[in-house]
Amino acid sequence: MAVEQPTAREAEQTRIHNIGYRSYDGPRLGRAYARRSLYSQSLRGAYGLGRSVKSKVLPMLLFVVMCVPALIMVAVAVATKAKDLPVEYTRYAIIMQAVIGLYVASQAPQSVSRDLRFKTVPLYFSRPIETADYVRAKYAALASAMFILTAAPLIVLYVGALLSKLDFAHQTKGFAEGLVSVALLSLLFSGISLVIAAATPRRGFGIAAVIAVLTISYGAVSTIQAIAHVHAADSTALVWMGLFSPVTLIDGVQTAFLGASSSFPGGHGPSSAQGVVFLLVVLGLIAGSHGLLMRRYRKAGL
């Protein structure tokens, strides 16, 4: 025993000080898992989760600003015992477009410009995921974040409507139409914004460029529409003008197919036939954004 004890102590010491390299034999979950991880990381990042306190402020604030009017409307509807909500489900996002624009303008560059600006992209592509995985994860994450932002107030309205015992069938139909509309809007806005953000690696420029594209196009289109409404007897030109801004595109689609009343001047929304064109343009823009992002990242490789 006298001989054994020092060896035992030595063994104990080596164990304590042994911080040697340990190899990893556990599972490697591969490409699909990496894509999911990137999606959830980007989605959380779009609300500042897992980032600094400073970067949580704006997205959270905008989320609250999106929901507060819905809460007020519900409160008013309940208090005045109104027969219907003061605003249609499909109309809510159009009214709140400035907030939505601000949100997507601030978060799209956050999502993609950082990786480009700090050249982190090669680190992704030296791993199992490929260009398509990266683009889809980022696109899906921002679209989901947008959907959360735009669908949350609709849920508030719907729950409020049910609580104040408004007509269930009518409310459910409106709510469903509203959800389809904001889903399209989320895909369209995030696609356009990501393309712009991916083309401008500097975050500040990206924010400015997204806001400019969204608001200037809407401002220009609605001004021309207003002029057309006053001067032209025919409303056809007015309707087609709606194809040239993201907000009026969504407005056109939901007027034609989702039972919305148009916010075009004079309420001249597109007919079903015209609506098909609006829908095709929306889908084309979504597909086009995806294609452009793929092209952008194929070049950004190593």
Binding site: Y33, A34, S55, D115, P122, Y124, S126
Partner: peptide, 28 residues
């Protein structure tokens, strides 16, 4: 792969960044 150029975002900690990259390599 360790690239030649800078590739690190400045606003996250080394731990957060490397954990994210480990998950991108497929680690649970």
């Amino acid at each position: 792969y360790m690239p030649e150029h800078d590739c690190l975002p400045p606003d996250v900690s080394a731990t957060e960044f490397v954990v994210h990259m480990a998950r991108m390599s497929g680690l649970p």
